[in-house]
Design a binder for these strands. Structure first.
Length: 864
RNA sequence: GGGCGUUUAGCUCAGCUGGUUAGAGCAUCUCGUUUACACCGAGAGGGUCGGGAGUUCGAAUCCCUCAACGCCCACCA
């Protein structure tokens, strides 16, 4: 497979054609294929983030993923084989939500499977959501992600990311499910994971448990309600301020600060919950603060996280009133924990609340309080922060349910230590990680009451009454994996025993999506199946918003599974902000999609834009930088074309020996700068500072176009010269490699059309730099070239000042310089005369003892 | 309330192991050019480096302090 038929550059640049040729060439010749036969030392491993495949990519993805690609490309050209997998994070709630909306269906596990059901997308479908079986729902998810992922794949290919597409995975594939279930079993066997019945943060919209990392605070308007509680055995009332009066029926205690003078006399007494006539203890507790509200508060099960903590240490019975759907459950006063002095009245009041949503119940209850004169005054408006599930639109509630938890709180030290062994770039990002770990106050709830995810490889035995024995789960054997306990059967049982007394049931929950994506290193290793490779990987690239989730959970799992770190370095990219410096997000509606920018500017210019940004720095979207990139790409094309024409014109073609041809001091002086550039760029790249490398290379490249090329072009066109032409060839070759990680398309095009040397494969499989690249062809310094460029600049300035054309001949130049410098300059006299458009006689040197080497002063005479 | 970051030309950003006159691109203005490139070239103007105080022979760079903005966390009766 050759790159293209005619190996010449077009007269004008055609980016679309170039991009298509490259994509085709790279794919058919497998330029980016990972070599599975190499050792760990010969391999560079990237723990690529699997993007959430539901929905669309935004320009921020392209930004950060391109930065990683630049790093990976450098490593590849440095002789490593690069394990650079790509995957899709397609399990979990985002996909379910998208599927629900796209096909207008909802999953109802009690509906039977319909083999003929085909999900269909109808624009603006207003009909009621069709309920389908769990299996039909999962199939619909699979259908939609297949097409979403196709779109992602083509964008990534269009932007030139060098993934090995053979190493592609998805987090819902059977292989991944096996890895994830194996992880669960390992943690279970180590005793790190347990199932616990306890109050959990619960999203009532999705009716699922959620984890601390998925919580987002939102500012919400609400009211303070001042409610009067009678103190039993006295005529006194105490006023309690609450934002959640609907929790009155679930009140378990009244607390005030132990030092609070106002309430000392009530400690040990009971307060009567109004309307429900429930006596509750008034107790001293640090939980209350003297100067907040009225200084005295009610504890309910559960108004907030603090209530949960207080309840756990109180030993008091649980009064759960919020159901899984966010409505008030059916409870009966006078029974169990729901004590009342007047159960009849309490039940009468509660009957008006039950089945209502929280907000409606609050409204009803407040009206009843007002009507009964129990409000000390009218509700006072306030805005306060309320916890939401990050993808939900109703506040989370605390609901008691059975969930699987990974014990993390006892491993904080180990996780902080692991974080310290990883090199964070930028280094201050490690702070964020440590602060998060230190602030962790809950274990990791990994079960979700959803459908499209990794099932728990667990069943429960049923006793003779049909009750599940949650304390002794039947965990799948590793050889069985992957399993779906809802359809697969545990060893020793048969399908007809499912759901029957003395039989079994499957765990119907699925895992938190992070429980699987925290295994991306293990998933990648599983895909390539090479025993020589292990964690830690070389780099983990990711954005800073998911340090608390993805980075944290990946470290946690690596520590728990193998007591090691998952990667040596973590590269944190910044965000793309919209031009008003606001974070781009779907909810703000300011998301910019990448494909039209790629279409407008071309892939290389977009990559240039991404590569200019430093790690960790948030950057405003600025198309001016893409314009700059486009100019650079255009210049690479044109300068190369120009050099090609000189090469075609000269005798130098085929294989050349640079050392014997590059003899002119001016050329050697220039190549000294090129060699220095490559050395510096290499050391920048070694620390993943691609942006500094690019800055350096770009600066030198414009220097090349503006000065060196102008200085030597006359000589290069002369039939007797070979040095300038050879030097230009070496220069172009070097720049192509230098720009290759940043602008893979244009550099490949130019490389393939190069009229010299043997071209056997892709530029991107050539070597970035060899030890002896510049042996024998560079001067020991660049004084000659530096001064020649200063003289060139001065001549141009003089002509511009004289408002005359740059082609005008200069009649005389007097250069003042120390003698040593004059000697150096005389070695490049021919080029200096050419660039000034002078006669040989018109250049004069003057001795200037006050100047030192490297300094000149110039007198131009009579620009004619 | 805690942690972290940012603040440099009209805009987007470099520079910050302290050292000549603080840089680039875009934008603005002037001039030029059509055999590498109008997706062009040559040049010019434009900044008391967020404010204040300090260390130093010397500070955009180091220390302190204040402010604005952003992100994360906590509180949220």
């Amino acid at each position: 497979m050759s790159y293209k038929e005619t190996k010449t550059l077009d007269n004008r640049i055609n980016l679309i054609e170039i991009e298509n040729n490259c994509k085709n060439f790279w794919e058919t010749t497998e330029v980016y294929r990972y070599d599975n036969t190499k050792t760990r030392e010969e391999t560079f491993i990237v723990d690529t983030p699997p993007p959430t495949a539901s929905g669309s990519l935004h320009i921020g993805h392209i930004f950060s993923y391109t930065q990683t690609d630049v790093v990976a490309r450098f490593q590849r050209m440095s002789g490593k084989t690069v394990l650079y997998p790509i995957g899709w994070d397609d399990n979990g709630l985002p996909t379910e939500r998208r599927v629900q909306n796209y096909y207008n269906i909802a999953c109802n596990p009690s509906v039977p499977y319909d083999a003929n059901f085909k999900p269909e997308h109808i624009e603006n479908d207003k009909s009621p959501r069709k309920e389908v079986s769990r299996k039909n729902f999962i199939e619909a998810c699979e259908t939609l992600i297949a097409s979403d992922e196709g779109v992602f794949e083509s964008v990534f290919k269009n932007i030139g990311h060098s993934y090995d597409w053979n190493i592609k995975y998805s987090t819902i594939s059977p292989k991944t499910i096996r890895v994830s279930q194996e992880s669960f079993i390992d943690l279970y066997e180590k005793g790190y994971v347990t199932s616990v019945e306890s109050p959990t943060m619960w999203d009532v919209t999705f009716q699922s448990a959620v984890a601390q990392a998925e919580i987002e605070d939102k500012e919400v308007a609400g009211f303070f309600h001042d409610i009067k509680f009678k103190v039993e055995g006295t005529e006194d009332y105490i006023t309690i301020a609450t934002t959640r009066p609907e929790f009155l029926p679930a009140c378990i205690a009244i607390v005030a600060h132990p030092d609070d003078e106002r309430y000392q006399k009530y400690f040990g007494k009971k307060a009567i919950v109004p309307l429900f006539e429930t006596p509750v203890d008034i107790v001293p507790s640090e939980h209350a603060e003297k100067d907040k509200g009225t200084g005295i508060m009610m504890v309910c099960t559960f108004g907030d996280a603090a209530d949960v903590a207080w309840w756990k240490q109180s030993g008091l019975p649980l009064k759960q009133i919020i159901g899984h759907n966010g409505c008030l459950m059916d409870v009966e006063f006078g029974k169990g924990a729901f004590v009342s002095n007047n159960p009849e009245k309490a039940n009468e009041v509660y009957s008006q609340l039950k089945g209502q949503k929280v907000t409606k119940a609050r409204e009803i209850l407040v009206n009843m309080l007002r009507d009964n004169g129990i409000l000390a005054n009218e509700p006072r408006p306030l805005t306060h922060m309320v916890k939401f599930y990050e993808k939900g639109n109703q506040p989370i509630e605390f609901v008691t349910s059975r969930q699987w938890f990974v014990k993390l709180l006892d491993k904080k030290e180990a996780m902080i230590e692991a974080g310290r062994q990883i090199k964070w770039k930028p280094s201050y990002m490690q702070h964020r990680y440590e602060e998060w770990v230190k602030g962790l106050n809950q274990d990791w709830c990994i079960s979700r009451q959803r459908f499209f995810g990794v099932p728990f490889p667990v069943w429960y035995k049923l006793d003779s009454y049909g009750n599940p024995d949650y304390n002794n789960p039947i965990v799948a054997e590793r050889s069985q994996l992957p399993v779906d306990p809802m359809t697969d059967v545990p060893t020793g049982f048969s399908e007809d025993m499912r759901g029957c007394p003395n039989g079994f049931i499957g765990d119907k929950d699925v895992m938190d999506t992070w429980a699987t994506s925290a295994l991306t290193p293990q998933i990648a290793l599983d895909v390539v199946n090479n025993d020589a490779l292990t964690i830690p990987f070389d780099i983990r690239p990711q954005a800073h918003d998911i340090i608390r989730t993805w980075a944290f959970y990946t470290i946690a799992k690596a520590v728990m599974h193998s007591k090691t770190i998952p990667w040596k370095e973590i590269l944190i990219s910044g965000f793309i902000l919209d031009p008003d410096r606001k974070k781009m997000s779907k909810s703000k509606g300011n998301v910019v999609t990448p494909q039209h920018l790629i279409d407008n500017y071309g892939a290389d210019p977009i990559r240039y834009w991404a590569s200019r940004a430093r790690l960790g720095i948030d950057t405003a979207l600025d198309e001016q930088v893409m314009v700059q990139g486009k100019k650079l790409v255009n210049k690479i094309f044109n300068a190369s074309k120009f050099v090609f024409s000189m090469v075609e014109n000269s005798a130098l073609k085929g294989s050349i020996n640079y050392e014997s041809h590059i003899t002119n001091p001016m050329d050697k002086s220039w190549l000294n700068k090129i060699e220095a550039m490559m050395q510096q760029a290499t050391s920048n790249f070694v620390t993943h500072d691609y942006a500094s490398a690019l800055e350096l290379i770009e600066k030198r490249f414009w220097d090349f176009c503006d000065y060196y090329l102008e200085i030597v072009k006359k000589r290069a066109y002369s039939p007797t010269d070979t040095s300038a032409v050879a030097s230009l060839m070496k220069t172009i070759d070097t720049f192509l490699k230098a720009f290759a990680p940043f602008c893979p398309f244009i550099t490949e095009e130019v490389y393939q059309c190069r009229p010299w040397g043997n071209i056997t494969g892709s530029l991107h499989n050539t070597s970035w730099k060899k030890e002896d690249d510049f042996a024998g062809i560079t001067a020991s310094n660049s004084v000659l070239y530096d001064n020649a460029s200063i003289i060139t600049s001065e001549i141009r300035k003089a002509k511009t000042t004289a408002n005359t054309s740059q082609r005008t001949a200069v009649s005389k130049i007097i250069i003042s310089a120390p003698l040593e410098l004059q000697e150096v300059l005389k070695e490049g006299i021919e080029d200096i005369i050419n660039v000034g458009n002078l006669n040989l006689t018109a250049l004069e040197f003057q001795v200037a003892p006050e100047l030192s080497i490297g300094e000149i002063s110039l007198d131009l005479e009579a620009v004619a």
